[in-house]
Design a protein around this nucleic acid. Structure first.
Lengths: 140, 140
DNA sequence: CAAATTGTTTGGTGCCATACCAAAGATTAG
DNA sequence: CTAATCTTTGGTATGGCACCAAACAATTTG
């Protein structure tokens, strides 16, 4: 199993994986398109990419589902979002502000930085954007 | 004078402006290319863009210089980098780690977030990456 | 100061990420 | 089993960034 650096996927692809994790199981193209506000054809193409890279299994016309690897990444991505949002909220940003601010840059923050931040905050279990799990945290 | 949101320029363009501020005065294409490790032709094209957008004045074959607006942005960009690096250093990242981590995502952090973070840290004047000035800070 | 060297710009291309549209194909509902 | 509803394919587009080769300007030097 390769090490997660956190920088493997582009911002949009991170969004796809996070959504797939949230929905769980077999997810339809239309669901994704609605959530991410993109054309279904864009979703298909992105899913095809993610599939070729091993993050999801795609059964054409049926749906998509995370692979074990994809799930691992998705969990990290959600955690990263939550940790960063919690961090920013400590500097006076509201939950909503922190969340939307983080959404713009989270894809560019490494796992090693997240591990440090998480450890430094005492491995919090609740954030402003959702529960924080530490399965993907390397510095427990 | 328009409000700086902090999201106006792409990551690379932010680097150009920060370097121009550091060098001051008329800067040559080759200097920029060496600093940013890109082909001189890439530098020329980017500088042309920045010039058309009003951030720099470009005298072909002579050099580039920040406009008043460009300088204002560049100062904010440097400040943003310093504030974010200082923030991350508070979570156990070394100066170098904080600096390189921030370099990857700084272009996507808004001025309003920076103002909050800066205020919340008590408007520090010294960071891990350099001095911090507050001329561009809206929440003094 | 003219020729040679050096630095800069232009024009062409290419890649990645992202997006849309129209048309074709598959699935599902009636 | 046809009609409506996804979904996918193929084409095209944009922004950001990069390189190369060739043309052009400036500077150095003999």
């Amino acid at each position: 199993m390769q090490e997660i650096t956190g920088l493997e996927l582009s911002p949009k692809k991170v969004e796809y994986l996070k959504f797939l994790l949230k929905k769980g199981d077999l997810v339809k193209t239309t669901d994704i398109s609605n959530e991410l506000h993109v054309d279904p054809s864009t979703t298909t193409k992105t899913i095809t990419d993610l599939s070729e890279s091993g993050y999801v299994d795609h059964v054409p016309y049926r749906g998509v589902r995370l692979t074990a690897t994809g799930r691992e990444y998705a969990e990290f991505f959600v955690n990263r979002h939550n940790i960063l949002s919690l961090m920013l909220s400590h500097y006076g940003l509201s939950s909503e502000e922190a969340c939307s601010e983080v959404s713009r840059f989270e894809a560019f923050v490494s796992k090693s930085a997240i591990d440090r931040i998480c450890g430094s905050m005492g491995h919090p279990t609740v954030g402003v954007c959702g529960k924080i799990k530490h399965s993907s945290c390397s510095s427990l």
